[in-house]
């Protein structure tokens, strides 16, 4: 079967994020990049399916600048078979990303397309469902288990207080929630083998931006704390403030 995983290169979650000079994007100097953590669950699931099923091709796709090759290469080192880099040097909105991903995947006739539930940077959580819509596939979000049946798939989602079991026909798009699996480390042999795997490069197409980011601002600085007094004498005033001003009691 044909499986695709869409992944995103995002700033390391440990990086300190500053807003860039344009006020719309982040300052990328000194930022380390990683594969978005939810996408790692998607990659792991695709490789695990390939190992269980046999006769499966796993393609990893990303949209980004040339540096995003590294994140594709990591997925290839984990065990994916080939990669597609949709090259774009500028920040695109979710519509542009989804349309480009769909365009790159259309010809592949995928049985299964996997995403992380949301990216670790923008976190809009909509690219997966949008790609499914464009390609005319059903989409199940936030899955925590995937079982392939004959021409169908049974997945589980965690919903408030319960576990939902859903069966879908193939092809289908799934987005991965934490708990789906434990992503493997890229083994050193895998890294050496990945050097021989192919990454196809295509230019991003100029689809319309439907909801571009207008501005980006850091959260407001936390106001200074207030010291209401010292020792036992301050307790009454503190309780009053917690009750009347902060309204937490």
């Amino acid at each position: 079967m044909e499986v695709a995983v869409c992944l995103k290169r995002v700033p390391d979650t440990a990086s300190k994020i500053r807003v860039g000079e344009d006020g719309k994007t982040i300052d990328t100097s000194d930022v380390q990049y990683i594969v978005s953590p939810y996408d790692e669950f998607a990659i792991e699931e695709a490789i695990a399916i390939k190992e269980r099923q046999g006769d499966t091709q796993v393609t990893v796709v990303t949209l980004g600048d040339t540096a995003a090759q590294k994140e594709l290469r990591l997925a290839l080192a984990m065990g994916a078979d080939s990669g597609i880099l949709i090259k774009s040097d500028s920040a695109l909105d979710a519509n542009q990303v989804a349309r480009n991903l769909a365009a790159a995947l259309e010809a592949k006739s995928c049985d299964l397309i996997l995403f992380g539930r949301q990216s670790a940077d923008d976190g809009s959580g909509q690219v997966g469902p949008m790609v499914a819509r464009i390609l005319g596939m059903p989409c199940v979000t936030d899955v925590v288990s995937v079982e392939l049946l004959d021409g169908a798939v049974r997945v589980e989602r965690e919903v408030e207080g319960a576990r939902e079991v859903i069966e879908s026909s193939l092809p289908v798009t799934l987005t991965a929630q934490k708990g789906l699996n434990t992503p493997r480390y890229a083994s050193l042999k895998g890294i050496m083998q990945a050097k021989k795997k192919k990454i196809e490069e295509v230019e991003a197409q100029p689809f319309d931006a439907r909801f571009p980011v207008k501005s980006l601002s850091p959260p407001p600085a936390r106001p200074e704390g207030k010291i209401v007094g010292e020792g036992v004498d301050a307790v009454a005033e503190l309780v009053r403030l917690l009750r009347e001003e902060a309204k937490v009691l």
Partner: peptide
Amino acid sequence: EPYESVDFFGIEELLSEDERLVQHSVRE
């Protein structure tokens, strides 16, 4: 807090992609 290594002279830029991936995997 996560570990931060030293790379004051940009030595990572002297590494090939597979060398970086090896370092990343073992660090994780």
